[in-house]
Simulated scan of single mutants.
Amino acid sequence: MSELLLPEPALNEPIVFVDLETTGGSTSEHRITEIGVVEVGPAGVSRWSSLVDPQQPIPSFIQQLTGITNAMVQGAPTFADIAPALLERLKGKLFVAHNASFDRGFLRGEFRRAGLAFDPDVLCTVRLSRALFPAEKRHGLDALVERHALVPFDRHRALADADLIWQFWQRLHGLVPLDVLRAQIERTTRRYRLAGDITEDLLDTAPAGCGVYAFYGEEDVPLYVGRSVRVRQRLRAHLSGERRSSKDIRLAQQVKRVEWRATGGELGAMLAEAQWIATLRPGHNRVPRVSKSDPADAPWPFDGPIVFEEREEALQSRAFHVVDRWRYIGHAASLTQAAQLHASSEKLPFELSTYRILQSHLARGLRVMPLGLPTDALTPVSSVA
């Protein structure tokens, strides 16, 4: 098929249209049997494909669907054999695929097993088709072939299906106004090439539950502090490009580094967030106003440091938070560790944010106890002077 002539492309960045054939649907259990790539860039359009030895049998129904047999992949290169050259072919380009999470997930897993990181920006043409043609019910590749008069030279073979995605991309330029197409592409693209040195693998180590996080920019200048009951998920929402506001996008463009801290609960996250904001004074956070009625210091209504417990049921974890004279010390996994945390802590100044937050929660019956007493000594406190 000859390439369509596009008067002005929706994107000026290099693009790869990718399709895979595999031994099944599980990225952990199954392996790739064929890779097809249509590469579009300043030099024009090029095509590349390779069978891959999955080093496991291909189920018979997969052989019938794709036409790829065990005999065909015998002697083909393994993924590890082609990984460096394939990564060089794909890196720095927008990764476009139909049901892209499938193809990206398989490639990311294979590259990881080969000791390489793979985190391209990704555009799913299923999602793009749904966004552009919401009245249509079917958005599978067969439906696109029928609806947009695409010309398959084969089906369920990797390069042939990658070529169909490329044909669909070209058709869109004649069906959708360019400004609308560009806007939907930007809205649909997931930006996995994250800020600075931040990668998907790094975000995998962020807390799944409650915590706080801080973004830093050039010269490690604090940009923003936030909290969430799902820190890892919130960080991805900030940085990956999905469902981001224009404000989030502007912030993400400045981020060079991120740090986080698990807090063991929502109240702990509130206290830690307020403490970080007061200490770091990041440019994208509102600094709480200090009114004339706010104390510069306040009497501590307890005889010494206190501790309160929070539980994260989803993670089946518990945390003991330590506060002393309106200063949030931190949290520990046990009362013994909480006492050690307090003993090793520095003397901190009065924290207005801690005062405000705890006053509110103590008034609602937060159960606290003096640090050093057994758990059954927890006593509700109804008010604080």
Rank of each mutant, 00 (worst) to 15 (best):
170 Q>V: 13
129 S>T: 04
128 L>G: 05
122 V>G: 04
199 T>D: 11
113 R>T: 11
130 R>F: 07
119 D>W: 11
167 Q>Y: 13
131 A>N: 12
159 L>C: 02
205 T>K: 05
194 L>H: 07
194 L>Q: 10
139 H>K: 00
149 A>G: 15
159 L>W: 03
116 L>S: 14
205 T>L: 06
121 D>E: 02
178 L>V: 05
117 A>G: 12
183 A>L: 07
183 A>R: 11
196 G>N: 15
182 R>F: 03
168 F>K: 13
107 L>C: 06
184 Q>V: 04
176 V>Q: 12
190 R>Q: 11
201 D>H: 12
197 D>A: 15
127 R>D: 10
164 L>P: 08
151 V>T: 15
171 R>W: 06
180 V>Y: 01
137 K>P: 04
130 R>H: 04
189 T>Y: 01
146 E>D: 14
198 I>Y: 12
106 F>R: 14
100 A>K: 12
203 L>K: 00
150 L>M: 08
202 L>V: 10
105 G>D: 01
160 A>N: 02
152 P>Q: 14
174 G>F: 03
173 H>C: 12
151 V>M: 10
119 D>C: 06
107 L>I: 15
195 A>L: 00
161 D>N: 12
178 L>E: 15
179 D>F: 01
99 N>E: 01
94 L>P: 10
177 P>W: 15
129 S>Y: 09
124 C>R: 00
195 A>T: 14
180 V>T: 08
121 D>G: 09
204 D>N: 05
189 T>F: 03
98 H>P: 10
131 A>R: 15
128 L>Y: 04
105 G>I: 02
187 R>H: 12
98 H>Y: 03
200 E>M: 11
101 S>P: 04
104 R>I: 03
175 L>M: 11
181 L>I: 04
177 P>L: 08
105 G>Y: 08
140 G>P: 06
109 G>E: 11
142 D>P: 03
177 P>N: 15
115 G>V: 13
155 R>W: 10
132 L>D: 01
184 Q>S: 07
141 L>D: 09
166 W>K: 06
128 L>T: 14
135 A>S: 09
184 Q>K: 01
170 Q>W: 10
130 R>Q: 11
97 A>G: 09
121 D>A: 13
186 E>I: 13
157 R>H: 09
191 R>W: 12
96 V>L: 01
164 L>V: 03
196 G>W: 15
125 T>F: 14
99 N>D: 04
179 D>V: 14
134 P>D: 07
140 G>Q: 09
145 V>Y: 05
